[in-house]
């Protein structure tokens, strides 16, 4: 097992380096890269150039960039926010996490419960209602759901007085108002989390429930409930559990749509800002961040597959 883990980590490391280098090379060779740099005041510009090794080959710049990350923990300096990017990330990531973690954790029991319910009542009314709900929630884009929610909750029914999440200052002044302003974004995220989890749980569980060993369980005297929860559910969770565990990593990355609609000052908002202002160092750092997050999530998924179901270890050699 240790060999397997080390091999996976090694592989991820190589892939991450290649991808980050590709992105770095592409960003550096953008024709507009230096044009934006001119907007920065000359002194800072010179310092940045000095530190990041401009006018040297891109490969060398890449190593300087990596070196800076390892030595000083700095990801470069943002053009528009005019601060060190590491600080920006450290400031914004917790905001995204704070918003994401609650709906994510809450969606697990709800989604799995609905999935089990639908699978047990397969082809009955309950199942059909749940399936209709799931397909609607999966089809309708989250920005539509969020927009409709804002309109009806804030403007028509006036249950909540602001369509956006409260800033830290508002939060301190009126905690109740601050908390309620987080309801809508969390609700939207909860809906989509529940929908996808319900769908996959139902699919996996129905497949297990039709297998022969379930008949055996019933024959040896287990009730349907016992057979489902002790035997079927465990097997059904094999493909689901790894993605749930991997999802915890993705909590950090935040949702672009939700953060834009509800004006959450999280990491997604920074990305959109950076893109609109063509703030290349920031874009570069964020892309590295997203790549690392994505690869880390897939690593966790693979590893937990290896732990949960040793039959499917990726690249574990010949069987």
């Amino acid at each position: 097992m240790r060999r397997y883990i080390l091999k996976r980590i090694g592989l991820i490391f190589v892939t991450a380096t290649i991808i980050i280098f590709l992105v770095f090379y592409f960003v550096k060779s953008l024709p507009t890269y230096n044009r934006v740099m001119l907007g920065v005041d000359p002194e800072t510009f010179y310092l940045i150039q000095e530190r990041e090794g401009y006018n040297r080959p891109v490969v060398e710049q890449f190593f300087i960039w990596i070196g800076n990350i390892i030595e000083d923990g700095t990801l470069g300096r943002s053009f528009t926010i005019k601060r060190d990017i590491s600080n920006i990330l450290i400031e914004r990531i917790p905001i995204s996490m704070r918003l994401n973690i609650f709906p994510y954790v809450l969606s697990l029991p709800i989604g799995i419960a609905f999935g089990i319910w639908a699978a047990l009542k397969k082809n009955k009314l309950t199942d059909q209602l749940i399936s209709i709900g799931v397909i609607i929630l999966i089809s309708v884009p989250s920005f539509v759901i969020a927009t409709m929610l804002q309109y009806y909750v804030v403007y028509i029914f006036e249950w909540i007085d602001t369509p956006f999440v409260a800033s830290d200052l508002d939060f301190a002044l009126n905690p109740l108002r601050g908390v309620t302003s987080y309801f809508m974004p969390m609700f939207v995220m909860l809906l989509s989390g529940v929908a996808s989890l319900t769908r996959i749980t139902r699919a996996e569980l129905t497949e297990v429930l039709t297998q022969d060993f379930m008949l055996l369980c019933r024959t040896k005297g287990l009730t349907k409930r016992q057979a489902t929860f002790r035997h079927a559910l465990r097997n059904a969770m094999v493909p689901i559990a790894p993605s749930i565990i991997g999802g915890f990593i993705s909590i950090m990355s935040g949702s672009l749509v939700i953060e834009r609609i509800f004006r959450v000052p999280g990491i997604g908002g920074v990305y959109l800002e950076a893109f609109q202002n063509q703030d290349y160092p920031l874009i570069m750092a964020l892309m590295m961040f997203y790549t690392v997050i994505g690869l880390a999530a897939s690593l966790i998924v693979d590893l937990s597959y290896g732990v949960i179901d040793p039959r499917i270890r990726v690249g574990a050699g010949k069987r």
């Binding site: 892939t15 991450a16 290649i18 991808i19 590709l22 992105v23 592409f26 960003v27 953008l30 024709p31 507009t32 893109f275 063509q278 874009i283 892309m287 997203y290 790549t291 994505g294 690869l295 897939s298």
Partner: peptide, 14 residues
């Protein structure tokens, strides 16, 4: 491993 968002943003910027 390339995030789709990275591809999209870079191509659009370029």
């Amino acid at each position: 491993g390339l995030p789709f968002m990275a591809i999209l943003t870079l191509l659009l910027l370029r």
